[in-house]
Computed example of a mutant assay.
Amino acid sequence: MVNDLKEPLMAKPIKSKAPEPCLISVIASAPILTVNTDEGETNTTETDNSTISSTENLSLDDQIDFVCQTFNLTLAAEYLERYGYSDSDVWRSLPDDELEEELREAFILFQAKQEIAQTGIFDNATKHEMCIPRCDFPDIVTPKSSRVKRYKIGKERWDSGDFPLTVGFSDYSTRMGRQDQERAFMRAADSWARVSGLSFKKGPARGSKITIGFAHYDGPWGVLGKAWFPKTGRIVFENKENWESKIPNRGGAQGSLAFYSVAMHELGHALGISHSNVKNAIMHPQYQRDVVNLQNDDIRAITALYGSAGRGNRNNGGTNNNRNNRSGRNRNRNNKGRNNRRN
């Protein structure tokens, strides 16, 4: 049964500390709310369902434009604090005529990461980037520790005894067939497996290392999903989203979002990878509508955690096998040398 998260509470002020769960969301003009779940408090955005229904079939570009119509400077300030670009909430007490100047450095940092003109003001290009569907995990834990170009990995990882990672569905989307979403998710898992040597297999929801579920957060074009680092192993997607299971997603229905690419992103978090600063990477915080394959930056991140498929994997015994093979080759060379000396 699909979960329906009800009775949200007003959220507390959001600090720049990195949260453990990851939510992909659009920040609209509605107030940010907190929903109590089994895993703790989840920040979502309150939306008018009638408005969402009327915009569900818009293209992504049109939907972004729709959100931008009501995305103001105050929401931009919340965005910058929420995602780590500003480590102070002093802006909350400032009038609008002083607010933009207070946030100048934060705007420049955000603009640099998004590779747009570093004007230091809340211009249309900056607003557009802030209205793109994205992940709720902060881009910067502290402004001073930011890196301009590189993946980031978390401190947690799966151990050798955890593999193959079993994947089980506890809930299913009502917008796709069950087999379609299972097939799309396992293909997303296979994308990570091909470059790392990790292994996954489909299993029952109970007892699986990674469980997939669907819940109603705020309807279409709001929260897309969330995931937790190892070894929580939980991924939850928005049930009301207009998901498209086709791979690649080009040619999908108007207003659809590629479940496959979002699944790759969320699974990356479940494997221990944080956000990338590389614009076209699957692990970039913004929704990647035209990227349906892992990019070099994603591959470097997963192999930094688990090793590469070609050189043996740290969890599946590949590294030990390589050592055994090298030892075997050394023994063969030594035996051959001894035989030559005898002859």
Rank of each mutant, 00 (worst) to 15 (best):
85 Y>R: 07
259 F>L: 14
219 G>R: 09
119 T>V: 08
212 I>M: 13
45 T>K: 03
98 E>T: 02
321 N>P: 00
52 I>R: 15
246 K>P: 04
183 R>I: 01
227 A>F: 02
26 V>K: 00
147 R>G: 07
99 L>T: 09
221 W>K: 06
112 A>T: 13
213 G>S: 15
272 G>V: 02
119 T>R: 13
59 S>I: 10
9 L>S: 13
90 V>G: 14
146 S>V: 08
142 T>Q: 12
54 S>E: 14
127 K>N: 09
174 T>I: 05
229 F>K: 04
317 G>M: 03
193 A>P: 06
2 V>K: 06
107 F>W: 10
221 W>H: 11
314 R>M: 12
86 S>K: 06
320 N>K: 03
212 I>W: 07
264 M>N: 06
64 I>W: 01
155 K>Q: 11
205 A>Y: 01
232 T>H: 05
108 I>S: 06
138 P>K: 09
203 G>E: 07
99 L>R: 12
17 K>C: 08
218 D>V: 00
164 P>S: 15
324 N>T: 10
57 N>I: 04
68 C>P: 00
85 Y>P: 01
39 E>Q: 11
292 V>P: 03
226 K>E: 14
157 R>N: 11
43 N>E: 12
112 A>I: 12
306 Y>M: 07
77 A>K: 03
131 C>M: 06
41 E>G: 15
320 N>I: 02
255 G>W: 02
220 P>E: 07
317 G>L: 04
69 Q>H: 06
208 S>N: 08
16 S>H: 11
239 N>T: 01
283 M>A: 05
90 V>L: 14
343 N>S: 13
93 S>M: 11
328 G>W: 02
35 V>F: 05
120 G>L: 09
331 R>S: 15
334 N>F: 00
323 R>C: 08
96 D>C: 08
160 S>I: 06
164 P>I: 15
219 G>M: 08
62 D>L: 11
240 K>T: 02
